[in-house]
Amino acid sequence: MQSYSIEEINNILDGELVGHTTSQITGPEQLDKAENNHITFIGSTKYIKYWDASKASAAIVNEKFTVEPGENRALIKVKNADLAMAKLLEVFNPPPPVFDIDIHPTAVVHETAKLGKDCQIGAGCYIGKDVVLADGVILYPNVTIMDETTIGAHTIVWSGTVIRERTEIGAYCIFHTNVSIGADGFGYRPSDDGRGLVKIPQIGNVIIGNGVEIGANSCVDRGKFSSTIIGDGCKIDNLVQIAHNCVMGRSCIMAGHSGLAGSVTLGDGVIIGGSASIKDHTTIHSGATIGAGSGVMGDVAAGKIMLGYPATESREMLKQWVALRKLAKQ
Rank of each mutant, 00 (worst) to 15 (best):
M1L: 13
H281A: 10
Q241N: 11
T155K: 03
I9C: 03
A243I: 05
T26W: 07
S314K: 15
T312W: 05
I48Q: 08
I25N: 05
L139P: 05
P95N: 12
K326I: 10
S57K: 02
V206S: 09
D100F: 11
A59Q: 09
G293N: 06
N245K: 08
H285K: 14
S277F: 08
I208K: 10
T150D: 12
P105V: 03
V157N: 07
T144V: 15
N93S: 13
T283V: 15
K64M: 06
F225I: 15
D118H: 12
D100E: 14
A153Q: 12
G204Q: 09
H154I: 02
D192I: 05
E8W: 03
L133F: 08
G259N: 12
P105S: 11
I207D: 00
P141V: 03
I145V: 15
H257I: 00
P201D: 07
V67C: 09
G194E: 03
I9M: 01
I39P: 01
S5L: 04
C234Y: 01
E90R: 14
R325F: 04
I76N: 07
Q202D: 09
D184S: 06
I163K: 11
D237K: 09
H281L: 11
G70Y: 04
L260Y: 04
G43N: 13
G223Q: 10
I121D: 00
V143R: 03
H38W: 03
I42F: 01
V78K: 05
I253C: 05
P97C: 00
V18F: 06
A292P: 02
G287F: 08
I25T: 07
V67G: 07
Q30F: 14
V296F: 12
G70F: 01
A171W: 10
E316H: 12
L75W: 01
T161Q: 00
I253G: 10
I76R: 05
D192S: 10
S226W: 14
G259V: 09
V296Y: 06
Y188H: 10
R250D: 11
L139G: 10
D280E: 13
G259I: 09
G211E: 04
S258L: 03
V78L: 14
G187S: 02
